[in-house]
Design a protein around this nucleic acid. Structure first.
Lengths: 205, 205
DNA sequence: TTTTAATGTAATGTT
DNA sequence: AACATTACATTAAT
């Protein structure tokens, strides 16, 4: 029923006649040089040369609108490489099984394990991003209070917090990681300011 | 000595009672919740017991803060020391609403549009927000052109752009972030429209 | 009102 | 775990 919308969703990005291998190549090619993919010189742009009808040799990396929404890779036995559960609206990810099978087969045929893995990582990069958690004020307050006393809570404390705050332990873990980073950053900044002020005021002598 | 969180980070690093440390405290914020939460049982925290005057028995583990005690600061000779790096300076932020009202009235009465504008800018500065950058048409054009080909320019390209466009690299970075968000949003919207159309037209069958 | 520069922070990947 | 980087939700300036 949604077959049409689905194919439309990907056509602008993944023309029907583009082979899976081409798509994969593009994406896995991206993995190596994420930012150096441009086949243009900045000078040419800054010089405002306008060659508007020249098609860039390499497709821009736009994961969120990229081609491969309909390419499905089998879960590996390697737990480290699992695609996180897809949190996104799976409207466009719902494909019929026959297609899936075919693509998986093609995949296994044409690509090395490492290629497939990095591809998979790419996929997860935009497909399986967890929706941003919005902590409540109370949750934050408790977390902050715990943090003041212990910035490195062990698994037991994290579990307890998770239970009492009705959060995943994972969220707690991440929260503390980010909180430590924040503290460290602010500390670094104060130090920098201090040094700078010391320096500048020493110039006034 | 380093018994507390970031609010103490500055004080523990510079001698007490210097204006430097005072300013640093303001800059890093958190002045208000200086008093530490002091019990170590999670229950007590989750139960929100507030024993604010108890001193923690154990020093929190903050490795990155333990290093810089050998920094010596002079007494600050310049009372009007600027705090240029961070915009978080909330020195002038404490305004009640009455004050605000009054100011606005006075403002309209006594000041020209341009005067009020610069006043506003100044306020935003004191509020801790970077004054909004107004990109020139040419800057936008170049940025858009680069974006077309590479939505994720690396530090090298950003630096180059910054140099050539006479902007901070930070501005470039932020611009690309916002640009990506914008693209994604529009993409999402068109997808939504597509689904909607598919759906409604399927109802007509 | 709309667009978008700026901010804060949750989430991800790499080491 | 640290760290750099990204996405994303908001705020506020235009």
């Amino acid at each position: 029923m949604l077959a049409e919308g689905e194919s439309m969703a990907s056509t602008s990005l993944c023309p029907a006649n583009t082979s899976v291998s081409q798509n994969l190549q593009k994406v896995s090619g991206f993995v190596e040089n994420k930012t150096a993919q441009c086949s243009f010189s900045i000078e040419s742009i800054l010089g405002l040369e306008q060659k508007k009808d020249v098609i860039p040799a390499v497709k821009p990396h736009r994961p969120w609108m990229d081609t491969c929404t309909n390419l499905v890779l089998r879960e590996d036995s390697n737990p480290h490489m699992q695609i996180p559960v897809s949190y996104e609206n799976s409207l466009f990810h719902a494909n019929n099984n026959a297609m899936q099978e075919e693509k998986v087969l093609k995949c296994e045929k044409y690509f090395s394990v490492t290629e497939r893995l990095s591809f998979k990582r790419e996929l997860s990069w935009y497909r399986g991003r967890r929706p941003r958690t919005a902590f409540t004020r109370n949750q934050i307050e408790v977390l902050e209070n715990v943090f003041k006393m212990n910035s490195y809570p062990g698994i037991d404390i994290r579990e307890e917090l998770a239970r009492k705050l009705d959060l995943d332990e994972d969220r707690i873990q991440i929260w503390f990681q980010n909180r430590r980073a924040k503290l460290k950053r602010s500390h670094r900044e104060s130090q920098f300011l201090m040094v700078k002020n010391t320096f500048t005021s020493s110039l006034l002598d």
